[in-house]
Design a binder for these strands. Sequence first.
DNA 1: CAAGGTTGCGGAAACGTTTCCGCACACGTC
DNA 2: GACGTGTGCGGAAACGTTTCCGCAACCTTG
Lengths: 336, 336
Amino acid sequence: MTIREVAQAAGVSIATVSRALNGESRVSAATRARVTAAAERLGYLPNELARSLHAGSTRTIGLVVPDLTNPFFPELVQAAVALADERGHLVLLCPTADDRDTAYRTAVALRRKQVDGVILIGDRIGGARLAEVLRGLPVVTVDREAHVPGADVILSAHREGGRLAVRHLVECGHRHIAHLAGPDTLRVSRDRLAGYSDALAEAGLPEVVLAGDGLDEADGYRLTGELLARHPECTAVFAANDMMAVGALSALRAKGFDVPGDISVVGFDDIHLAGYLRPTLTTVRQDTALLGRRAAAALLDRIGTDAPPIREVVPVELFVRESTAPPKNTGGPDAP
Amino acid sequence: MTIREVAQAAGVSIATVSRALNGESRVSAATRARVTAAAERLGYLPNELARSLHAGSTRTIGLVVPDLTNPFFPELVQAAVALADERGHLVLLCPTADDRDTAYRTAVALRRKQVDGVILIGDRIGGARLAEVLRGLPVVTVDREAHVPGADVILSAHREGGRLAVRHLVECGHRHIAHLAGPDTLRVSRDRLAGYSDALAEAGLPEVVLAGDGLDEADGYRLTGELLARHPECTAVFAANDMMAVGALSALRAKGFDVPGDISVVGFDDIHLAGYLRPTLTTVRQDTALLGRRAAAALLDRIGTDAPPIREVVPVELFVRESTAPPKNTGGPDAP
DNA sequence: CAAGGTTGCGGAAACGTTTCCGCACACGTC
DNA sequence: GACGTGTGCGGAAACGTTTCCGCAACCTTG
C-alpha cells in the first residue's frame, strides 16, 4: 500500500497526496477530502523508512541499558520510553550485559539505524571506540559521569543520599556510625561513602568504614560480622545498598542483636523487599522514574538544537521505617 | 559518510563498494582490499534505512509489553531482546499500560516503521482494529490466547502449575484445600483455578473457592479472613499469585495461625520476595526468560518463511519452601 | 585464431517518501 | 485587454542503498 496507489485511487499525483496528508497548505479542500478518503479506505500507512531517509531523522532513539534483571532499571526504562512516546519518538532497547564490546557493537548498530540520539545507562561502559562511533550524535548518560565528550549527564544524588541517611542516624542520637561500603571501583560506592563522610564531618563524629568486594547480601553479612568483632561501640550501620543491609540484618539476628533496639540499620535503593523485611528497612530511594524521564527529556531537547551539554542531579529521598531508632544506652535527643 | 564518498576514495563505483563490503562474489581481491581500507579509514557505516527501504526488511521487531514495572516482564523482555540480538535483529520496545487504544496506536507506529514482526504480551489487548492493522505481519502473542488471527501463541503452563501446587498439598496429606482465585476475567486466573480443580478431582477432594476482584495483597488478606470464618476445616490454601499469598500470610499471622503448622500456603509466580518472607513461600515459578526466548525465536522463525502458526506451552516449576507441611491433626502420609 | 565463456566492474533502476520548481489557470487591478 | 499575483497541482530530484543488466577484457577451447 504505497502513496502511489492512493494517488491513483484519488486521481491525483503523489505530490498532492503527500501534501494533503501532511496538512500542507496549497491543496484545495475538495482534493484533500478525496485524498484522505482514499487513504482511509485503502488503509494506507506512510512508510516511515522512506520518510526518514529523506528527512534525515528517524524519530527513534537508542536506549542502552546494562541489565533489565536488575530491579533498578525497568522503572527507569519505562519512564524514558513513556516520555519519548509522548514526544513522538520510538525507542530501540539494547541490553549490553554491562560489557564494553557489546556496548560498542550496539552503538554501531544504532548508528547504522540512524537513530536520532542515544541514552547510555550503566557504570561500566565507555571508552574511546564508543565515543568515536557516537561522535556527532546527541548522547545522554545516566548515573555515571560522561566518558563520551559532549554528552549530557543525568545523575542520582548518591552523595546527598549518603548524607541524608547518616544525618538521620546522627539526629537519632547515634555517635558511632559504621559504613558498609561497596567496592571503590564503582562511582556509586564512592559517592555514598563521600556522603557518609560529609555527614560525620558535619557532626564531628569518627568514621568506621568496612569495604567489600561487592554489593550483595553475602558482603553485608560478612562485613557485619567483622564490624561486631572489631567495633563493638557502633550502634548504627549505614549499608551502601539494601542487599548489603539485608545481609547485615541477617548477621545481626544471627548474633542475637535486636534491630533497632541494639543497632540501627539504613540501606540505600529502597528495593521492593525493603518494606517486607522484619523490621522494615529505613532506606534512601532514588527516583528512578524521574531519572528516566529527565534523561529522555534532555536527549530530545538536544536533538535538533545545538544546546551545550547539561549536567543534572536528580534528588533522592529518605524513607524512615522500623530499622532505625535512637540508641538504647546513650540516649538520643528524644531520650529522657 | 555515504557509500559515494567511499567509492570516490577507493576510485571505484558505488556498485563495487556495495559488492565488496557485502562479501559478494564478482569483485577482485585487490579492489576489495582497497574498498575495505577506504571504508575503514573513513569510518563508513552503511545507512540501514536505505538498505531496509530497498530490501523490504528492517531486521527490527516490535515488542509490545503492558508494564515493565510489573516484575514479571523485565526478565521476559531481556530474554526476548537477547535472542533477537543473537539473530541480528533490534527491538523497538513499546509499553502500552495495558490499554487498548495505546496498543492500537503503537501497532500503527510499528507498522509505519516497517518492523518485520511483533511480539504482543499481556492479557488485555486485542480487538478487531489491532488485528486489522497487523494483518499480514508475523505476530507472536505471549501468555494469552491469540485474538490476532494467524498469530503464534506462547503460553505459560498456568493450569499445570495450579495442578502441581495443589497436588503437592494433597501429597502432604491435606484434605481440605482452599483456592484464593483471581478475577475470572483474566485467563491466568481461570487457568490456575482449572489446575486446582484438576488436582482435587484426581484426589477426589472437595473444592473451596473464594474469588477476588484483583490479585493483590489486599485481596489475599480479605479473602483469607472470609475463608477462616466460613471454612475452618481448611488446612491449606493455594493463592492465585504470590501477592495474594503475602496477604494470606499477613491475615493468618494476624489471627494467630501458624504457617505451616496450622495452615499451609502456596503461591504462584515466585516473586523475589517469596524467598525472603517468614516463612519462605512455597510457590510455582514461570520460566519467564524461556517464555521470552521462545517468543522471539518463534517470531524470527516465522519471518520470511510462511510456516503455519504454532502454539507452545512453556513448563512451570514448583518450588517447595517453608510455607507448606503436612497438616498437624489429620496427619499426612508421613505422619505416624 | 575465432568463438564462447568467465570475470570484474560501472550505469542505472528501484525502494517510497518529501519538496522544489514550474506550469496553468483564475482573479483582481490599472 | 494586458499584466502581475496567487492558487492548485504535477513532474522530477533527492535521500542511500542493492542489484540487474550490460560491456569490456581476459581466458579457455576447438
